[in-house]
Simulated assay, not measured.
Amino acid sequence: MADIKYKRIVLKISGEALAGEKGFGINPPVIQDVAKELKEVYKLGVQIAIVVGGGNIWRGQTGAEMGMERAQADYMGMLATVMNALALQDNLEQQGVPTRVQTSIEMRQIAEPYIRRKAIRHLEKDRVVIFAAGTGNPYFSTDTTAALRAAEIDADVILMAKNNVDGVYSADPNKDKNAVKYEELTHLDIIDKGLQVMDTTASSLSMDNDIPLVVFNLNETGNIKRVVEGEQIGTTIRGKE
């Protein structure tokens, strides 16, 4: 454990990352690779909590743009995150990693309801905890869920795993060749510069609770382990100046 920089982490995985190049749904090779990577981190003795998005199946904002009532569309998005959580749980357990899924909306036949103390106890017993269904409330993103859960369980860091993006840039590197990559920022920088890392609510919550954030590329093998061991990859966003 002497070589580990972060003992307890919240890993935020977007739904799009689980879709891989397919762009929609769950890509089996991708989720299998994620499970294998997490097993390597788990073997280091790191306590792992995961917040998974649902954008590979449904995005509440898209539904709202189609004319659907926003709250209803967001609830559909929450259900999409549960599907991803169950798929990730199954792949982790195939790797021999014990897991628990906790949902913010009760569905006891398939998962535990979210209880803070129980989640912490699972982590202390070396179980990976997957948080699904967002915060249980419409209008709040899974980024905000990650910031909230990290504060609640006293996590050392939020690891934001991106799909083929290796950090935070001044502009979209896929569209602007002059985009500059940032090595370090603060949450206040993210808000002031309007950088598309996480929504303002999530940034403010992380800043208020002094929770660092590391943004890195999920698609490069071994990156999660590198971050946990303290290697400087991607972009580190500090809680305070």
Score class of each variant (00 low, 15 high):
Ala17Pro: 01
Pro28Ile: 13
Ser206Asp: 10
Gly55Glu: 02
Glu16Phe: 07
Ile13His: 00
Ala146His: 14
Gly230Glu: 13
Gln47Cys: 03
Ile153Gln: 04
Tyr169Glu: 09
Ala132Thr: 03
Asp199Ile: 07
Pro113Gly: 06
Thr201Gly: 05
Asn91Pro: 00
Val34Ala: 15
Asn27Glu: 12
Val215Thr: 15
Asp33Gly: 14
Glu229Leu: 15
Glu65Pro: 01
Gln47Met: 11
Ala17Leu: 13
Thr145Leu: 03
Thr221Glu: 15
Asp3Met: 08
Ile158Thr: 11
Leu205His: 09
Asn84Val: 04
Gln109Trp: 02
Asn178Lys: 14
Gly55Thr: 02
Gly77Pro: 00
Lys181Pro: 10
Ser170His: 10
Ala73Pro: 06
Val227Trp: 11
Tyr139Lys: 12
Asp192His: 11
Ser170Asn: 12
Thr144Asn: 03
Pro212Tyr: 14
Phe216Lys: 07
Ala2Trp: 02
Leu148Glu: 10
Lys22Asn: 09
Ala71Lys: 12
Tyr114His: 05
Gln89Thr: 06
Gln32Trp: 05
Tyr169Phe: 15
Arg121Pro: 00
Arg59Ser: 06
Lys125Arg: 12
Gln95Ser: 00
Gln196Lys: 15
Glu37Ile: 04
Arg116His: 03
Ile4Gly: 03
Phe140Asp: 03
Glu241Met: 06
Asp143Ile: 02
Ile153Asp: 01
Val168Asp: 09
Glu93Asn: 14
Gln72Ile: 14
Leu88Ser: 13
Val128Met: 02
Ala85Lys: 04
Asp74Glu: 08
Ser204Phe: 06
Glu241Gln: 07
Ala133Tyr: 01
Thr99Asn: 04
Leu79Ala: 02
Lys240Tyr: 08
Ala73Val: 08
Met198Phe: 09
Arg70Ser: 09
Glu183His: 10
Met198Gly: 02
Val228His: 12
Ile130Arg: 04
Lys125Phe: 04
Glu241His: 11
Met160Gly: 04
Ile48Tyr: 13
Asn178Asp: 15
Ala19Trp: 07
Ala119Ile: 02
Met78Asp: 06
Ile153Thr: 00
Ala151Asn: 13
Gln94Glu: 14
Asn56Phe: 04
Trp58Ser: 00
Ser141Phe: 01
Ile13Tyr: 07
Glu152Ala: 03
Ala2Arg: 14
Gln94Val: 11
Arg149Thr: 01
Asp189Lys: 08
Ile31Gly: 12
Ala87Ser: 15
Glu93Thr: 14
Ala80Cys: 06
Lys5Trp: 01
Ala151His: 14
Gly234Glu: 13
Gly55Met: 01
Ile158Phe: 11
Tyr182Val: 09
Glu229His: 03
Thr144Phe: 11
Leu38Phe: 14
Pro212Gly: 13
Gln61Thr: 06
Met83Thr: 01
Met83Ser: 00
Ala35Tyr: 10
Leu92Trp: 08
Gln102Asp: 00
Phe131Asp: 01
Gly134Met: 08
Glu16Ile: 02
Lys43Cys: 07
Arg121His: 06
Ile190Glu: 05
Lys181Leu: 12
Thr144Gln: 01
Thr81Gly: 08
Gln72Arg: 14
Arg238Cys: 04
Thr200Gly: 03
Gly134Trp: 05
Lys175Asp: 08
Val41Gln: 12
Ala80Ser: 07
Asp176His: 15
